[in-house]
Simulated scan of single mutants.
Amino acid sequence: MHSELIISTYNSPAALGLCLESVAAQRVMPDGICIADDGSGPETRAVVDAFAARMAAHGRPVRHVWHEDRGFEKNAILNKAIASSTAQVLVFIDGDVMIHPDFVARHLALTRPGRFSTGSLIRLDADATASVTPEMVRSGQVFDRGWLRRNRALGKLSTWLKTRPFPVPVMALFEILSPVRRALCGANASVWRSDLLAINGYDETIKYGGGDKHLGIRLNNAGVRGRHLRFSAPLVHLDHPRGYADPERMRRHKAMIRAARKSGEAYTPHGIVKEEDSAAR
């Protein structure tokens, strides 16, 4: 079973650097790492190049999949990463998160064809985000419940449970019993590449807001069922502005999500293979 970790990013080199520190600390490493870059500049490339050199010493290839900046086109760059991958299992995170040392291992332990696994986020506010250093990531301090509590990140019982306070078998039981809908969260997900290709990947007409959820619904419609890692794969999210959010587009995307759930559609004509490409053949 060959695996690849796909990390989406856009012009956030400092956050990406912290994310990659957490990747380097994984107890079980993926076979490969792909940075899916939505048009970042040279500062991000420098971070990726330095990380690739570091991983080469451990025999872990790092790919930098990039396209020019056309605004928020995360779904398009993810499709490019999926299409060009040779891995069987793809684990997805965003470049503004830090993953627990057991994160990849937990995803790989649960993966199988016909299943996607998905988790959630522990969110830091702006002040806590500004205090994070690479050493804090390497030491695991950013996952410490005391530090998270002092930094206002554990306001709810459900968020405290996301820190994995009990052994994994106990947390897994909580996940199975959780009434929360198994909606795909693209910052914490894994799925077999063949299952993604069967539905043609992400719908590229969806920009910011709802693309992950739409993908998860179409996977469900294709018979690929979701499995929670809500409480057993901790992940801490760094705060950032969202100037690209467009309320009108988000309303359109919500309508698309409702339509997909109602219609049972699985395949999108606006994904990895485009309608015009199919027509040309």
Results as ranks from 00 to 15, higher is better:
residue 1 M to Q: 14
residue 1 M to Y: 08
residue 9 T to R: 00
residue 17 G to Y: 10
residue 21 E to Q: 08
residue 24 A to N: 03
residue 26 Q to K: 03
residue 30 P to C: 00
residue 31 D to H: 05
residue 33 I to W: 10
residue 37 D to G: 00
residue 42 P to M: 06
residue 43 E to K: 14
residue 46 A to T: 01
residue 51 F to I: 02
residue 52 A to P: 08
residue 55 M to E: 06
residue 60 R to M: 15
residue 61 P to I: 04
residue 67 H to Y: 00
residue 74 K to H: 03
residue 75 N to P: 00
residue 76 A to T: 01
residue 80 K to M: 07
residue 81 A to I: 08
residue 82 I to E: 08
residue 84 S to Y: 04
residue 87 A to H: 02
residue 90 L to Y: 04
residue 93 I to W: 07
residue 96 D to R: 10
residue 98 M to S: 06
residue 103 F to Q: 04
residue 103 F to I: 09
residue 105 A to K: 13
residue 112 R to C: 14
residue 112 R to L: 05
residue 116 F to W: 13
residue 117 S to V: 11
residue 130 A to C: 03
residue 131 S to T: 09
residue 131 S to V: 00
residue 134 P to E: 12
residue 145 R to P: 02
residue 146 G to V: 00
residue 148 L to W: 02
residue 151 N to F: 00
residue 152 R to W: 02
residue 157 L to H: 04
residue 157 L to A: 09
residue 163 T to S: 03
residue 164 R to P: 01
residue 166 F to G: 08
residue 172 A to T: 13
residue 173 L to P: 10
residue 179 P to A: 02
residue 182 R to P: 02
residue 185 C to L: 12
residue 189 A to T: 02
residue 191 V to N: 02
residue 197 L to Q: 15
residue 203 D to C: 15
residue 204 E to F: 07
residue 204 E to Y: 07
residue 208 Y to R: 00
residue 209 G to K: 02
residue 210 G to E: 09
residue 214 H to G: 04
residue 220 N to P: 03
residue 222 A to P: 01
residue 222 A to H: 06
residue 229 L to C: 13
residue 231 F to K: 07
residue 231 F to G: 09
residue 242 R to L: 09
residue 242 R to H: 12
residue 245 A to E: 10
residue 250 M to S: 07
residue 252 R to P: 05
residue 252 R to C: 10
residue 254 K to V: 05
residue 254 K to Y: 05
residue 255 A to I: 02
residue 257 I to C: 08
residue 261 R to F: 01
residue 266 A to H: 12
residue 271 G to N: 09
residue 274 K to R: 12
residue 275 E to C: 10
residue 275 E to Q: 02
residue 278 S to E: 13
